[in-house]
Structure formats: structure tokens, C-alpha cells
Amino acid sequence: MAALVVKVDPASSVPLVRQIVDQLRVLLVEGTLKPGTALPPVRRLATDLAVHFNTIAEAYRQLAAEGWIDLRHGRGAMVVEREAPLASRRDIAGYKRRLRELVSQMRAQGVPAGRIAAELKEIAEGMK
């Protein structure tokens, strides 16, 4: 099971909200964060990560919009059961393009094709 760790790097070109959303989504898809789990209160997480509380609030709102968490006033953020939506062909084409860019980066760094395929398979099956 992956550790329940969230990390932020203010020096990164990736916006803080996206860094947090991406990491939480990985934990949700992998099932590390199970339905019924309460996420830390916005202020607690913002304090620990040294970011503005609006950053965490926005990240939670994005995950709620994706259907991963339920935001209720006074109850905090709770992970909920989520029906996997059907990805459109356009969405799949977009992901394929991003994957291609990532794989080409890996190949350029000298990672063998077989290793890349094995890694992708392991990640995808781990998120079932």
C-alpha cells in the first residue's frame, strides 16, 4: 500500500493546486484512500504544507467535482464511492498523446521499451 503522503514543491512549474489534486487522485484511484475515509481539514493540510488554505480548498473542490469526495459544511471532506465514468474517444486520444510524450522522454533517457511497457502494465493493473 502506498504511503499517505502528499508533497508540494513551490519551485515547480506545476501549480500547487494541480500538484495536490494529482497526488490525491493517485491515492484515490489506487484505493489507498478508501470510501468513508475523512481527508484532513483544509486548514490542517494547508498549515502542514505551508500553502494558503484556498489552495487546499480549491484542490478539494476539483476532486469533489470529479466525484471522488463529498464536501459538506461542518463534516469536512469524505471519500465516497464513485462510479467510473465512460471516457470519451477524445479523452482517450488526449491521454494517448500525453503518454506518448512521457514514453518518448523515457526512451530519450535510455529506458528500454520492454521496461516501459512493464512499468505501465504494473501501474495500470495496480489501479484496478
Binding site: 504511503a3 508533497k7 513551490p10 519551485a11 475523512a38 493540510l45 504544507l49
Partner: peptide, 11 residues
């Protein structure tokens, strides 16, 4: 380094 991490442990 400004990189910071935390755990999503229980309250």
C-alpha cells in the same frame, strides 16, 4: 528547500 510533505493520517 521549500519542498514540504505531510501525511494524511488520522486526525
Amino acid at each position: 528547500s521549500l519542498v514540504r510533505q505531510t501525511t494524511l493520517g488520522p486526525a
